[in-house]
Nucleic acid binder design. Structure first.
Lengths: 108, 108
DNA sequence: AATTTGCGTAACCCATAAGTTACCTATATG
DNA sequence: CATATAGGTAACTTATGGGTTACGCAAATT
């Protein structure tokens, strides 16, 4: 089960991985700690974690035989940029609509 | 080539579809107009468009035999909610860090 | 020292997204 | 009317992501 190398968008395309990020936003968790929350084998969780790690969504600290996962901002950057772009697009749309409405109001 | 039903996250997981959304943020385009920008067959583009439409990212207006694609905000909502959640998470982190620093400063 | 626990990795299976080509229909155009 | 153009759909192939089980190993625990 070698983990594939996915980009930020592909990473969050999986519901389980999104759920993992949500859980980690509440508390730091180990692999097994995470696995308890899912209806899948631990190796499957392990693979997801590897993917999340590989895309910079989490950092992992080994404490003894445990591996503690913590959210990392880096992975979210590309996503933020993307929706930020479209946020601005929609804001611009609204702006134009308002201008249009104002023009119409004046011409009345 | 029946288009699969994908959710918002899966929709933007595909680079071509993200590119299509970018193009449509510049101007309304027809299917062929879009296809010109990609190194893939028109049916492939057609399928992507169907996916984008199915997830509420675009609306389509048929004019004669042409189909004009326009961005639609609805599809972006889930994505915005998601990154919004984590934006707040990181803001909270920063907040806590500042508070901590302030506390330390005072205790000096 | 023996066993249990936490986790990684390898080998494998299956579903499906994403592309293709081939073909069809409907609207425009000469 | 004939033909070119815009685009949908079907059938098919292929790559790969996501799951599994089996196994190995190092750190705790007894």
């Amino acid at each position: 089960m070698t983990a594939p190398r996915l980009d930020a968008f592909q990473v969050i395309a999986d519901p389980s991985r999104r759920q993992m990020l949500m859980l980690l936003s509440k508390e730091s968790l180990t692999i097994n700690g995470l696995a308890e929350n899912f209806d899948m084998s631990r190796p499957a969780v392990s693979k997801h974690i590897k993917v999340l790690y590989g895309a910079g969504f989490i950092s992992i600290t080994g404490i003894g035989r445990e591996r503690h996962c913590v959210l990392k901002q880096e992975g979210f950057n590309k996503l933020q940029d993307f929706i930020n772009y479209f946020d601005k697009f929609w804001a611009g749309k609204l702006q134009k609509l308002e201008t249009l409405l104002n023009t119409k109001a004046k011409s009345k």
